[in-house]
Nucleic acid binder design. Structure first.
Lengths: 195, 195
DNA sequence: CGCCCGGCTTGATTTTAATCAACTCCTTTT
DNA sequence: AAAAGGAGTTGATTAAAATCAAGCCGGGCG
């Protein structure tokens, strides 16, 4: 039952219970889809048309610089939302790619359907406000880390706050997410183990 | 008329016009206050009780590491909101200080009064949702810069996106905001001028 | 089954930015 | 008016992380 995890998720973040009628509206608003490993959900240059709720699997969102190096901005697994919100809000071409890191299942919402839900199902804006708060806090932490901590300290903070990521994503992606090279991360981990 | 700029601000971000009755509710909910240069609005260790709307002046929010070095997380001037949202949401002691960089005037809202306004004045949650979106985008840009750009590129991006800050805040604070030392910023600017 | 590729490690070297230190202007204080 | 402190610059040195390069698995594919 792929939709059940979304229902639980909404109830949790809205702090209320969806009625069956409301939940029916939510189900109608989205379409399930599968992504194979390495398949793109969004490619740089496109406008981001969907918000994806991850049922199973894992995604990353990243930019590619002029040297061809990838920089991972976000990672997402089950029960995460994945999208380039800037692009979908502003209707501008995205600078980012989003692709599946594992074979995955998602529920896709177009921006229009999402707007409809916000207007018709009270739990949805409640959930959104809650998610925005969480996101604000998480972003603030990440910015704080990036301006005040060393590479090693940032790794240890990730180990502390998001150990799941370390299990789910290969090390070179973790390095990219932390803003360091794979070599540096490898050395940091070696050092950390020696204690 | 200090309150007028807030009214304009709310109308702008909510995309609607406050009635005089609604605006009266907003005015009742806050108290005006002045801060002298260097005066604290929040000190690390306290729970953040107020959200401040800046009428005039400038503020910074920063942490101090174990070596005594300050790291500036946010800068704010007229028509910016200033607070440690993490602390005020979670009711946890803040890790940050907020102080006035210039003599300033603000309107202070307690979290409770703000909650009341959200419930009673429809424009307020609209404004908040809009601000959260903008904030999301701004945070994403800053994180992107911090993991994929060099110190010089980050400076140039700030020059591009927030030239106001460069005029309003001393160079050492700009450096701290960018996550570099004042010496490095000085050298970057010298290099940039030579073209 | 063997081959090949991608992910990880390790070492040597270079680059970037931090650190330490001295000096110059200003502005503020007394 | 003199003194003191703060902000910015510049130079020399050190430290951190990137880059370049080589080699080592281990899993997937032909």
């Amino acid at each position: 039952m792929p939709y059940e995890s979304l229902r639980t998720y909404i109830n949790h973040y809205a702090g209320t219970e969806l009625t069956d009628e409301e939940f029916a509206l939510v189900m109608e608003a989205c379409t399930p889809r599968k992504y194979r490993k390495k398949q793109y959900l969004l490619q740089a240059g496109e406008v981001c048309k969907y918000v994806a709720f991850v049922i199973s699997g894992a995604f990353r969102m990243y930019s590619v610089d002029d040297k061809g190096v990838e920089h991972i901005l976000h990672l997402g697994i089950e029960n995460w939302w994945v999208a380039d919100r800037e692009s979908s809000l502003m209707l501008t071409p995205s600078r980012y790619n989003i692709d599946a890191v594992e074979d995955s299942e998602v529920l896709l919402f177009t921006s229009e359907k999402m707007q409809e839900l916000i207007a018709t199902v009270p739990a949805i804006p409640k959930m959104m406000a809650r998610l925005d708060q969480r996101n604000f806090i998480a972003s603030q932490k990440r910015i704080h880390a990036s301006i005040s901590l060393t590479a090693e300290e940032r790794y240890l903070e990730l180990l502390e706050n998001n150990p799941v990521f370390l299990q789910r994503f290969p090390q070179n992606m973790i390095a990219s997410y932390l803003g360091i090279t794979p070599e540096t991360l490898s050395r940091i981990r070696k050092k950390a183990l020696q204690r």
